[in-house]
């Protein structure tokens, strides 16, 4: 078969161009360390990488949510532990105050201490987190949970809503406990056989009053009610502990998930250097072979032999 010189040159040049571009492409991959130099190299792979990147970013978001929840719950924990200690002290004082051997002056001293403890509890009930949110106000985070009225009464002005945040695609955790559940009310029997709801701070005030007035029935009632309040704080602490456990266990899950996604992402996008370098050597070899053979073949001409 006849091969024209133009054809010989054209096809050799095309071959060498192809091999050159293969080498250049592999070089670009090696330089970037990525399997794909641009998305159009493999649209499916590119889409997969984007999806995995999205998933990774999701996990980062969940991690930030966990961090946020952690700091919020730590604030709540500090407040609750403080409240528990204060209430414990009040309870001790209540037991002490019920003792018949005390005189009025002793009771007055106790009443003073109870008053101070109540004020401390009041300030704990209006704890704010690092962003300035009142943590015991329900969702009305911009207002203090309890306010001191003109009559000296401290009333709850938050709401009963609990805020949950997503800490995984399927898992939520509550980051607050409404203040009226922490600094809870007690049901006190009324004269008519019914009952009424008495607020946390009113219980303490009533107890303090009972101490100053020496009202024995009031003292006994105060002791019972304060025990109930202590119980509610303990429940709140248990609830908090449960939520903190959820966060800790989710951290482990998250770490595993992130590792899994990182592996998938690395498989999808990172270059296998050993294979790539081997391929590059093969491509360079084949380019050199094409160049060498072209140089030889192109020198062949019958004209060289005509004298």
């Amino acid at each position: 078969m006849k091969i024209s010189n133009a054809q010989l040159f054209d096809s050799s040049i095309a071959q060498m161009n192809l091999k050159q571009s293969n080498v250049a492409e592999m070089q670009a991959k090696l330089a970037s360390g990525k399997q794909l130099v641009k998305p159009s190299d493999d649209a499916h792979q590119a889409a997969l990488i984007q999806r995995l990147n999205s998933a990774m970013q999701r996990q980062d978001v969940f991690e930030r949510s966990l961090d946020g929840a952690d700091s919020r719950l730590a604030t709540e924990e500090t407040a609750l532990m403080g409240a528990e200690n204060l209430l414990q002290r009040i309870r001790e004082l209540a037991i002490q105050g019920s003792n018949d051997t005390l005189n009025d002056a002793d009771r007055n001293i106790i009443a003073k201490e109870v008053g101070h403890l109540r004020d401390s509890l009041f300030s704990l009930s209006n704890t704010q987190d690092t962003s300035g949110n009142y943590i015991f106000s329900g969702t009305a985070v911009n207002n203090p949970a309890f306010v001191l009225g003109g009559d000296g009464a401290m009333t709850y002005q938050g709401n009963q809503n609990q805020t949950s945040i997503d800490i995984s695609e399927t898992r939520q955790v509550a980051i607050n406990r409404p203040g009226d559940k922490v600094f809870s009310s007690v049901a006190r029997a009324t004269g008519g056989g019914g009952s009424e709801s008495i607020g946390f701070f009113k219980v303490l005030s009533d107890f303090s009053n009972a101490l100053t007035t020496g009202n024995d029935a009031g003292l006994a009632q105060g002791l019972t009610e304060i025990s109930a309040l202590t119980g509610d704080i303990a429940v709140s602490l248990a609830d908090l502990g449960g939520r903190m456990n959820t966060i800790d266990s989710q951290r482990d899950v998250l770490a595993d998930t992130k590792l899994r996604y990182q592996n998938l992402l690395s498989n999808a996008q990172d270059l296998d250097y050993a294979t790539a370098v081997t391929k590059l050597s093969a491509q360079i070899l084949s380019l050199e072979a094409a160049q060498a053979s072209f140089a030889k073949i192109s020198q062949l001409s019958l004209f060289d032999y005509i004298r």
Partner: peptide, 15 residues
């Protein structure tokens, strides 16, 4: 991703 990530962050502290 950015939009939903911000939505998620905001959901953890909407105030």
């Amino acid at each position: 991703d950015q939009f939903f990530s911000s939505a998620s962050s905001l959901s953890s502290d909407p105030a």
